[in-house]
Amino acid sequence: MTAAAAAAPASSARHAWRRFARHRLAVASVLVLALLCLLAFSAPLFELALGTDSERVNLFSRLAPPSAQALLGTDELGRDMFLRLLEGGQVSLLVGLTAAVAAAVIGTFIGLVAGYFGGRFDAFLMRFTDGIIALPLLPLLIVLAAIDLDKLGIPAAIANSENISLYRIILIVALVGWTTVARLVRGAALSIREREYVQAAKVQGAGSWRIMRVHILPNLISPIIVATTLSVGNIILLESVLSFLGLGIQPPIPSWGNLLTNAQALISTAPLLAFYPGFLILLTVLAFNFLGDGLQDALDPRAVRRRA
């Protein structure tokens, strides 16, 4: 019993907005996230204004303190830290959002099919997701991140392309991340398919796909949005950990996670290098979690508190 019982969209949108606006932290989170995205994706503008770029090495000003030239100082190779953080932010935000949406799409599809058709496939799916929940995730992700794409038969042109680490991490995270949404959607689909308006559509001769698309899916949008928002934070954490361990986003592409890899060695000489990227991760993840919480109260007020 989730948003399915929700009233019609027109008036409920206003109610939802009012409930959301009450959540001051969630509103603040929207602003923070908007600001972060704006900054991250205007990195080229900053590069233009500062007359440098995030990859320019300057060995004469290594580990420089903040100045008008380098707003947050420089790293061990004299690269502008501020610009590198912005570039890293682009990657981390992009990976988080893309993987979350991909996981939501996969999860929605599988959950819908399982919940609507039920039967053996459904029973198998539930066992499977139970099994996935019961596994130590990170060690397995590390294995997945470390496997050799050549041996999977992926053409070298793709396997060695510059952005492969980006695609790989999105794929890995989406592949393990779909279960939350799938279970959520499955449960709701199971209850909605028993409703009389679904029966009515069947009597009229509607096919299964039409029923899922027109009658079931629209009622699931709210919980899916909530779960997806909450998962963005987790995914950014996961990406940063894998990148930090050297298995996620590979240099020279900067990400908040791999910026910390180098900073670890310099922790005693330049602790601020390690502080900035981690703090930005914390801020972003926190904002997504507050946002998800606020959306849950706004869109799905009756939902039992599910775990993210």
């Binding site: 929700a6 009389e196 308006y197 009515a200 629209p218």
Partner: peptide, 11 residues
């Protein structure tokens, strides 16, 4: 159907 609310999609 019996229940004219349940048999109409609220959306």
């Amino acid at each position: 159907f019996q229940d004219p609310f349940g048999s109409l999609n609220p959306r």
